[in-house]
Design a protein around this nucleic acid. Sequence first.
DNA 1: GCATCGGATTTTTTT
DNA 2: AATCCGATGC
Length: 764
Amino acid sequence: MRDQRMSRGENILHARLRGRESGKGQGHKNTTPIIAAFRAIEYNNPVMDYLQRLNPQQREAVTAPPGPVLILAGPGSGKTRVLTYRVAYLVGALGIRPFHILAVTFTNKAAREMEHRIVAAIGAQARGATISTFHATCARILRREADHLPFNANFVIADTDDQRRLVKDVLQELNLDPKQYSPQKLHAAISRLKNEGIFPEDFTPSSYGEKILKRVYEAYQNRLLSSNLVDFDDLLLWTLHLLQTVPAVHQRYARRFQHILVDEFQDTNLVQYELVRLLGAHHRNIFVVGDADQSIYSWRGADYRNVLRFEQDFPDAKVILLEQNYRSTQTILDAAMAVIAPLQGKHRKRLFTDRGAGQKIVVRRVPDDREEARFVVETIASLVARGQARPGDFAIMYRINAQSRVLEEAFLRAGLPYRLVGAQRFYGRREVKDALAYLRLAHNPADEVSLMRVINVPPRGIGAKTIAALRTVAQRAGLAPGALLLHMAAAPEDYQRLFSPRALKALLSFARPLAQWYSLALTTPPADLMTTILTDVGYKEYLLDGTEEGEERWENVRELHRLASRYHDEGLSAFLEEVALVSDQDTLEDADNTPILLTLHAAKGLEFPSVFIVGLVEGLLPHSRAWDNLNEMDEERRLFYVGLTRAKDQLYLTYPETRMLYGYAEPAEPSRFLEEIPPDLTTGDHPARETGGYQAPRWEPAPPQAPHREPQFHTGDKVRHPRWGTGLVIGSRIKDGAELVDVAFESVGLKRLDAVLARLEKIA
DNA sequence: GCATCGGATTTTTTT
DNA sequence: AATCCGATGC
């Protein structure tokens, strides 16, 4: 009731506002109390100041009347700004309670940033709005509504690794040969079904392969449920199911979320679309922002056609195009447009800026990925040294994570700090996963994936045989193996007939502490619980095997402990959820002024003054997986487009003549996308520019390695270093194409330096 | 049950 | 190159 009234009030206010806007010429004749009130808001409210700073299209978007709104926003067109001010406007100008606002993004970082900016715009009155990711929002709803669901509220979120393990397990259970039915592919197929909103029982197989798929999907889903687990896709799927089948729940959330805003709308999948549509079915206050040209997640079920669907489902939607770019130079935009020109689309954009042409794009051909990395590091180092840039101005982007390695090495070698975006690096580590599995188990002993992960780590005499026996007994008892263990700890005598003495002893050695952790988990903060568990099982001693690697692993566990200690008040459940839902982008902190290494995917939504895109060769970008698939090829193109449009001022594009494949160097062709960039926009080694030159016949052995360079410095030379002053060269040699010079400085003594990086000069 | 070795297999991108 | 898997020997 109350909600209804409020939203009617909003509409009245809004109608007045619009009337006033369109009738500007009429002056201030109409001074009803409500308009007077509105003017007071206008002059006292910071939001209204900000409105002045938006361009007409942005302002139109921000102040659009409630109802369906579709914003098609080119890169750098101020889309985050529009979203942020829209929320600020809803609250500050229309008086909507934040409680009624739901803004969804794809990463926690984006959500945090939006919240931060909203608070900056309208202050503390913004508190209470739900600004979060799809997945986190759904997880919250599921926990609250667990009564209606086939799992309970302390479910744990299964990550990709868990999911893959489960599929493998299931294959074994069904006696299917994992070589014949790739777990990877089956898992992908299951995920695709889930993203389309299809539960196992809804799936009608139409071929033998699909029959198998259905069986695996069913078994997989049963395993998840019996473990009280939920995978990423389930978070969305179960929430949709809930809204569709439980009217009371649907009403509750549809009433609560009177205004829904969605960022990166082109990356929503069908289930997400349906969620939004259902939640907004009554009030229709749905404000979505997207750019079909930046759709790069179709492999994850994202469907940019949701943009079209939206237009169909809400034919009265206000559609606003944001085309002016405030980020990049025209040169960069021209290159970006050339790259996506071959794509077909309804609204082909024209990107423009008033920033001017700017610098040409630097294109660089290099012999291999190591030289490429060296080029990147040297370029950065020399620009920074000359005071022309700050280290934090640079981002280096690549197609696949494996490419980061060489880059990291180059930075390390040069002694320059860098930051790598990627959570997997940490959360994917074995020791981190082990420690988390213990915590998950203490929280939810039914979790079979976690149980199997750590039941014999460190080794405690529970091998395949014992595990099989445990599973059989558990199945007969109708319990999850973990639950059975708890019972076993309480009443070991019941199990003497069921297990061999040896197996029973081994199982009890795990079951007893498990039971303790389980009761401890209710009251103990996560970090303390972790300490207890790891001490109980002797995990530290297990890791510290005297090797350096062991030290490193233990260090990672301690890092996890530090993270856990931040959840002292929120508790274990919150910690586990947070850990499951961190995205790669979330690991990026913008403060620390160092170059950033990241995949092109992770770069979406970010911007940097200078951007390197490396590895621009066929097979990498476009990735070889896309070679025989037009849709995927288009997506590769968009991915490159996303990368290009991250740059504000300067782009560097590099392509090695070889690429590494499974540890071997293979000859590589320049990327077709690179060739499509008009050469005029570039300087350096654009592939089209070398057509006149001599080209070695392909079949001949590769030309001699990188030109063997002679040292430029010789023993006895006098040199000057920008920081250490003058010194005497006492030796020099070429290593990995770099010249390493030993210099005795008058100030600091003996140093070995890279001649280029150190900007060493000869003096007479 | 456990450690070790050799061979196969892998990688696209991520909530 | 690095990890995973299975077979082998203890």
